[in-house]
């Protein structure tokens, strides 16, 4: 846990300084901690409590059932299917969205590019387009007689239109495209905000050594952005594992056709807010999902090379 700050400190005043720093740190953290204790710790504790009960939300009745909800979850084949959809979704979307965001940000940060502000504004717009409008546009693009089918058929990819929206083999992929399209701008903006602080002298020095653009990206930009990449990867993993609204809109909440768009978050939603008294089961699934996300995130952090602290 030794940080860079520590060894620079004069030995004599080390202890005193440490105490002062600890005090300061907690002062900085206190307001955030208060909110977190009330609205996260207490709420999560309540959800945890519910996960061990059979809950009737309407009449506020709780009946302790021990690990029954968890045991049910482990033998729930539908949950397994939802997990595999979710994992596949994350596995495809996270690397792609990170890569595209990084490349576009790198390109845009180049000093050779003019009209940066305009590009940035345009790239930011997808985050603003309402999800209702997006659904409409994507349904139009991907429908049987839509432009995408026409395009692929005109270049001779296939000659019978594909029912992207109702064919289980394609529906999840359509949602992947939608998701990547709408998340890249957020991450690109974050990358850019960090890239403006990358000293130009790093690049200049590299150019003198005859580095190509690729070398600069590979050996300067990517390592410099590592902490931000950790952030992008982790929030990407969390976002994809909790993916809900697009699947919901797409399948009218059913997760169909044939469970192909069923995600864990959609399943949790259906159990929590459906007409059955299954809030307890929904909470158990949510707790399990949290554990899975945490494990996957740690793995991604390791692959990306630490969180910047160790």
């Amino acid at each position: 846990m030794a940080s860079n700050l520590e060894y620079r400190k004069p030995q004599k005043t080390g202890q005193k300084r440490r105490n002062r720093e600890t005090r300061q740190a907690y002062l900085f953290l206190t307001p955030a901690l208060i909110i977190i204790i009330i609205f996260f710790v207490a709420a999560i504790a309540f959800a945890l409590f519910m996960s061990f009960n059979k809950v009737n939300m309407f009449s506020q009745q709780f009946r302790f059932t021990g690990f029954k909800n968890y045991l049910n979850a482990f033998s729930d084949k539908v949950a397994l299917k939802a997990l595999s959809n979710t994992a596949l979704f994350s596995f495809v979307v996270v690397p792609l969205q990170t890569l595209i965001a990084l490349v576009i940000a790198y390109g845009l940060s180049s000093h050779a590019v003019k009209f940066k502000k305009t590009f940035r504004l345009i790239y930011f717009l997808p985050t603003l387009t309402s999800s209702a409008a997006l659904t409409l546009i994507f349904m139009f693009i991907f429908n049987v007689a839509g432009p995408l089918n026409n395009f692929f058929m005109s270049i001779g990819f296939y000659n019978k239109p594909i029912n992207f929206l109702q064919n289980p083999a394609y529906s999840l992929k359509v949602i992947m495209v939608m998701n990547i399209w709408s998340t890249v701008p957020t991450y690109m903006t974050i990358y850019l905000a960090s890239l403006v602080d990358l000293p130009e002298s790093f690049y200049e020095a590299a150019e003198m050594d005859g580095a190509t653009s690729w070398d600069k990206l590979r050996y300067i930009t990517v390592p410099y952005l590592r902490p931000i990449t950790t952030y992008v990867l982790l929030t990407g993993i969390i976002g994809t594992f909790q993916m809900f609204d697009q699947a919901f809109i797409f399948s009218n909440g059913s997760g169909g056709p044939n469970n192909s768009t069923l995600t864990l978050a959609l399943m949790i939603y259906n159990y929590a807010f459906g007409s059955l008294n299954t809030m307890g089961y929904a909470c158990a699934l949510a707790i399990l999902l949290t554990i899975i996300i945490f494990a996957v995130s740690r793995l991604a952090e390791k692959i990306n090379g630490g969180n910047g602290l160790q």
Binding site: I36, I38, F39, F40, V41, A42, A43, I44, F46, A47, M57, L234, T235, I238, F241, Q242, F244, A265, I268, Y269, A272, F273, M279, A282, C283, A286, I287, L289, T290, I293, F294, S297
Partner: peptide, 19 residues
């Protein structure tokens, strides 16, 4: 903090409503 971020928000809506 990281772990709290990973709890699906749908599950926290009702507890927060009660709080």
């Amino acid at each position: 903090f990281l772990a709290f971020m990973m709890v699906p928000a749908q599950i926290l809506l009702i507890p927060n409503f009660l709080i």
